[in-house]
């Protein structure tokens, strides 16, 4: 699974914080054209895995491959330049910029990259590329009307959409979305799921999503990996995960499974 079409592949990732083993030998793949879910109870190691994927922390051991290249030692910006974007559980928006400028920076930051001259001045073609990317991203996420407002003035749900639009404008092939629906109401969550599906189907991007909202996970994900206490405990399609006693035990406790509590995991 480390070929150039395989998108993001992590192999036997181990992350230790001092003596604490936060993530233990997790392997997964998030290819293009698929939404891959990463679920598990709180403290399972999902965000730590995300940080290891995006380069915000260096795994103790294991490898991260992006389109066939080993990126384990690369910093976040180099991974982003190779097509890996992400959003954050605790939103990281640029509050001093307007929504449009936020989304534009999604593309401009990548264009500037590691070239000092590009930080200072853009190429002639940049302006049109950025403008098109911004308009497309705003439209896709349904926030064109908010373009001139500041993120600080928006609701949590709208801020989530701005962060997604910024990631979309970046033109990344693989997106890591960390609890993107937290703070959204039911309707917003459904609409959010539709945006994700259209991203995958129309643009062929690959998405790796960490999410606690099981209705969203079960409705949009093609494949799921389940973690518990930093260990991978199950993987399969949403239907297989839903039927798994191991997963139910992780979420509800083994006693609940033995006494025959409802089979669906939080749906």
């Amino acid at each position: 699974m480390t070929g150039s079409d395989s998108g993001l592949v992590i192999q036997d990732i181990v992350v230790k914080y001092g003596g604490h083993l936060a993530v233990n030998r997790i392997s997964l793949a998030a290819p293009r054209g698929r939404i891959t879910g990463l679920i598990g109870p709180n403290g399972a190691g999902k965000t730590t895995t995300f940080n290891a994927c995006s380069g915000l922390l260096r795994p103790t051991s294991g490898e991260v491959h992006l389109f066939g290249h080993d990126v384990t030692a690369l910093p976040p910006q180099r991974r982003a330049q190779r097509g890996l974007g992400r959003t954050f559980q605790r939103m990281e928006l640029f509050d001093s910029l307007s929504v449009r400028e936020n989304v534009a920076l999604g593309r401009e930051a990548g264009i500037a990259g590691s070239r000092p001259w590009r930080h200072l001045r853009g190429a002639r073609s940049d302006a049109q590329t950025i403008a098109e990317a911004v308009e497309d991203a705003l439209r896709l996420c349904g926030i064109s009307a908010l373009a001139s407002r500041r993120p600080a003035d928006l609701s949590t749900g709208q801020r989530r959409l701005v962060e997604l639009a910024r990631c979309v404008a970046g033109g990344f092939s693989i997106m890591l979305l960390d609890e993107p629906s937290s703070g959204l109401d039911k309707q917003e969550t459904v609409a959010f799921g539709q945006i994700l599906r259209s991203l995958v189907e129309a643009q062929g991007v690959g998405i790796l999503i960490v999410e606690h909202d099981m209705s969203l996970v079960m409705s949009v994900c093609d494949y799921l990996h389940v973690l518990d206490f930093g260990q991978p405990i199950f993987q399969g399609t949403p239907a297989e995960v839903n039927a798994s006693d191991i997963v139910r035990a992780a979420y509800l406790g083994s006693e609940a499974v033995e006494v025959g509590l409802p089979a669906e995991v939080g749906v």
Partner: peptide, 29 residues
């Protein structure tokens, strides 16, 4: 562009780096 990048840098350098910008170049500049 540099001004927007700088304001972004002030707000969230982590977000900028995950968008592909080498924030240290921006800071040194």
């Amino acid at each position: 562009r540099l001004g927007r990048l700088l304001r972004g840098l002030s707000d969230s350098p982590v977000a900028l780096s995950t968008l592909g910008l080498d924030v240290n170049i921006c800071r040194v500049l």
